[in-house]
Simulated assay, not measured.
Amino acid sequence: MQNKKLKIRLKSFDYHRIDNFAKVIINEIKSTGAKISGPIPLPTNIKKYTVLISPHVNKDARDQYEIRTHNRILYILSPTIKTIDILLKMDIHIGVYLQVNI
């Protein structure tokens, strides 16, 4: 697995959780001796929704909501078998989505 590269993609609605989980991953992977690059912040996806408060009388009365999805990427440049075992056994924080690609 010397020439392989793992890509870890993290998504979350809360940037504090995603940054803390990225630090946990970095500390665990560095203990195995693998080289790591990141976390690389990607652009935040913003979805905006407008909802009518009073649909019949006041057309101008509206509420606006938005959902922000924060993204980070980590690259593991020289993973070992021990690195993969740690990734599989790691507890994922609540509210963080983790995707691993080879």
Results as ranks from 00 to 15, higher is better:
E66T: 03
M1K: 10
N45S: 10
K30T: 01
K59T: 03
K47Y: 07
I53E: 00
P41W: 05
K5S: 07
H70N: 10
K11G: 05
N58V: 00
T50C: 00
T83P: 05
L10A: 01
Y15R: 12
I73C: 07
I81W: 09
D91E: 15
Q99D: 11
T83Q: 07
M1V: 12
V96D: 11
V24A: 12
N3E: 12
E28D: 12
L77M: 15
T83D: 06
E28V: 01
D14Y: 10
T80Y: 09
L6W: 03
D19C: 10
S12V: 06
I102E: 14
F13E: 07
P79Y: 06
S78L: 04
K5W: 05
T50G: 00
Y15G: 08
G38V: 03
L88H: 12
D19L: 09
V24C: 10
K59Y: 10
L87R: 09
K89F: 06
L6P: 01
I67E: 11
N101C: 09
Q64G: 00
I36M: 03
S54G: 01
K7G: 01
I94P: 14
R17D: 13
V24F: 08
K4L: 08
R72K: 11
S54Y: 00
R72I: 03
N45R: 12
F13A: 07
E66K: 13
L6R: 02
H93I: 15
K47N: 07
I94A: 15
K5R: 11
Y49L: 00
K35G: 03
M90G: 14
D91T: 15
D14S: 08
S54M: 00
I46L: 08
Q2K: 15
Y97G: 08
K82R: 05
I26T: 11
I53K: 09
N71F: 10
I67Q: 11
L88A: 13
L74H: 05
I102T: 14
K30M: 02
Y15H: 13
T50M: 00
T44G: 08
N3K: 14
V51D: 01
I81P: 07
Y75F: 14
Y97N: 13
A22S: 14
L52Q: 05
I46D: 04
D91V: 15
K5A: 04
D91A: 15
M1Y: 09
R62S: 00
T80D: 07
L74Q: 06
D63I: 04
P79K: 02
R17E: 12
T44V: 13
K23M: 10
K30A: 02
Q2S: 14
Q64S: 01
P41V: 05
D60Y: 05
S78N: 10
L88V: 13
I67P: 06
T80P: 07
D60I: 02
I46V: 09
N58Q: 04
I92R: 15
K4F: 08
N27Q: 14
S37F: 11
I8L: 01
I84H: 04
Q2L: 14
A34M: 01
R9Y: 00
D60V: 04
Y65L: 04
Q64M: 03
G38T: 03
D85F: 05
Y97C: 08
K59N: 09
Y97P: 05
K47M: 03
I67H: 11
L6Q: 02
I8Y: 03
L10E: 02
P55I: 04
T32A: 01
F13P: 00
S54R: 00
N27P: 05
A34T: 01
Y15L: 07
P41S: 10
D85Q: 11
K35I: 05
N101Y: 13
